[in-house]
Design a protein around this nucleic acid. Sequence first.
RNA 1: GGCGCAUUCGUCCAGUGGUUAGGACGCGAGGUUCUCAACCUUGAAACAGGAGUUCAAUUCUCCUAUGCGCUACCA
Length: 497
Amino acid sequence: MTTRVRFAPSPTGYLHIGATRSGLFNYLYARHMGGKFLLRIEDTDLQRSTEESTRSILEGLRWLGLDYDEQIVFQSDNADKHRAAALELLEAGKAYRDFTPKETVSGVNIKEAIADRARAAQGEKSMRDNQYRHLSKEESETKANAGEPFAIRLKVPETGKSSFEDAVYGLQERDYAEIEDLVLLRSDGHPLYNLAVVCDDIEMRITDVIRGQDHLTNTHKQILIYEALGKTPPRFAHLPLILAPGGKKLSKRIHGEIVSMTTYRAAGFLAAAFRNFLALLGWSAGEEREIYNLNELIEKFSLEHIHRSNAVFNFQENDPRHWTDDKAIWMNAEYIRTMPLADLIPLVKAELKQTKLWREEYEDDDKLWFEKTVDLIRERFFTLKDFSNQGRAYFSEDFDFDEKAVDKNLRKFPDLQTWLPELADRLESVEDFTHDNLETVIKQFTEEKATKFGVIMNGARSLLTGLAVGPSMLAVFETLGREKSVLRLRSQVAWNL
RNA sequence: GGCGCAUUCGUCCAGUGGUUAGGACGCGAGGUUCUCAACCUUGAAACAGGAGUUCAAUUCUCCUAUGCGCUACCA
């Protein structure tokens, strides 16, 4: 049987980092097994679902390279089928009409209200004491025909227990006494999540359900529905959750855009790097390696190596240097500095285009120069954004001077204000504007001025790049070339700030 | 409250009935260098606690603690 898995996000906001990881694992599993990776948008929550969100999810998946098979399924399109399934179960006597007036729980602390209610009902509560559970078919129909509103609930067996073998968590058991007669169809006719999921998974012929551990206990309910419907449940694999520092839930409301995939793309992360990082949250190939390209991930991935404890997505909110997980930042830098240059170039191009720094010559007359320059500066960069920020002086005459750099490398040595233009004169006439030659000339210049090589170089760095940090200055000179180097050494702009 | 799941350095991930419990990120120190967030070397850093099984337990079992999840006519 061909493996068929699905990623089923609900379009209520941006693509969440945890959901993305579920999507990735599903994708890796499908590709590893040579199966299908399907996409289903669970848009049954009409109030909260938006098209904008769906678009954002699709974009995120495309960015990460998680291409899906077949047609996207929109859950809301199947509402009729879900209803039909509920009615079928009602007809078969496996479900019943519950005429209990709808009790609305609302407010911010829904979870607490539910827990309170459960606490209050402790002891006297039996999951099977619903008075309508045993209503005769005739009576039930009479009431329904009279227009009394009703929900449809599944008849969960009185005794026994539900069990399944989870591919990650092992044997799972739950006593039927712990499971209430769950509602399949609301009194307004809308199908509920557990029913919808089961119906769709059946319809889509899903063989393996890989999803967050928050569904682990729900699974028993779903299996009950499969059984009532006379279908064989798929194999289940639950994933550990991704939590915020301190082991708390990672939420949009509390943690903001740090949980959104769009943030990482906008911040200059490489899809390959972030995907790699995400793959290692809750899974490992069982070896001490961490850098894997997509094909390697696909090849190595297996459910057996998913582990059971939740992972913490580590970041420090008020520290710009650790604004997101250190390892993600490190991995991004690692990719930038070690990936094939040819793969990096298009990404840098996109970044420069976006910031209006791109020039067509970079693909034409200046192609070699551009590649060489990117190769030179990428060594110290962490994100693609760095190419347009820290790297700006390589691509434009319009760059800023870092105040600290000017203080430290220029103002501190007032002589440089005359020396550097002098050096410009010297460089203007140097016959070969290359590394070794420049070194000889500048060393000599340094001796004449009885100063340190570093003083000249750092001063030049600040003037040429606006920064106090960067690649070897000889390489910077060479890259910027004679004309620009000379011009910038003579410029008084930084001195007059 | 009930039920379920989990617990190895700060974080991510290895690992074994007998190991100096390993790697990575981050952090500290030193080095290299014209600067640096790069590079090299190096340091600190963990088996939640208690019982039991065993010659031996981080590894197996139980209890406790803690965290998380579910407990809804939400998804």
